[in-house]
Design a protein around this nucleic acid. Sequence first.
DNA 1: TGAATATATGAGCATATATGCATATATAAA
DNA 2: TTTATATATGCATATATGCTCATATATTCA
Lengths: 125, 125
Amino acid sequence: MLIYSYMAKDLCEIKSIHQTTVRKTIARIQKIDGLDRTAEIFKLMGDMTKLKITCALSLEEMCVCDISHVLNISQSATSHQLRILRGAKLVKYRKEGRIAYYSLSDSHVKNLLSSTIKHAQHRKE
Amino acid sequence: MLIYSYMAKDLCEIKSIHQTTVRKTIARIQKIDGLDRTAEIFKLMGDMTKLKITCALSLEEMCVCDISHVLNISQSATSHQLRILRGAKLVKYRKEGRIAYYSLSDSHVKNLLSSTIKHAQHRKE
DNA sequence: TGAATATATGAGCATATATGCATATATAAA
DNA sequence: TTTATATATGCATATATGCTCATATATTCA
């Protein structure tokens, strides 16, 4: 990075323009707790299928079959996505006979969802 | 979906268990404004590199070179990611000579970031 | 017990994405 | 004008992800 052919004599010399800012920022980012989890949540919700599932479940609990109809995707695809959301503990489910009712695992997900939608709507232009 | 070999006679018969819930939920999701943009924002922030860039920029504006040092990735990778963030209007930049100073395009991104980090920290267990 | 049904899951494929490499562009300095 | 430097970007590739297909599992009912 930032190493050109004509710099080859001095590979150790890696420059940053504002060293104080860089050091300060590195320290601050390292101090942020739960950044990995934040990225995980963002990544999961960044998929339209999972986002819609989450939206649907923020209204009320639903079974796999109904979710697949709401999103107009196959039962298999729905189940795969729910499995991932389950793994990330964003949703939970209860079984009633052979029917699995999924719901959001806690209110934080719902709040995050509504606040982000608001942010998205406040988009400029 | 939900079609088994022994159902082949009646392919049009696709069942949903709770039809009222399904219809209601479809209508509600369609009514949500800015869902695509929400997914876009989530997806971008769901990548550790972009998330860290956003975190860094939420503190103060920074040049490409410094960002690459903060994240410990190449200048090229940094520039590629910034390009994507620019395209999604999450960051903007100003040029000062040959240096490009990037910053968050508005405070909504910063607010979204801090609120999501809080949500992530409130994680159960 | 056997058929129907609701869900789960492994394998494979198609697509998307992040990054490295090489190079282009733009500006500053000599 | 030539060299140095800060950033941008096209291309290639490795990896990740979502979906389909086939099938497994679990539960209900006849």
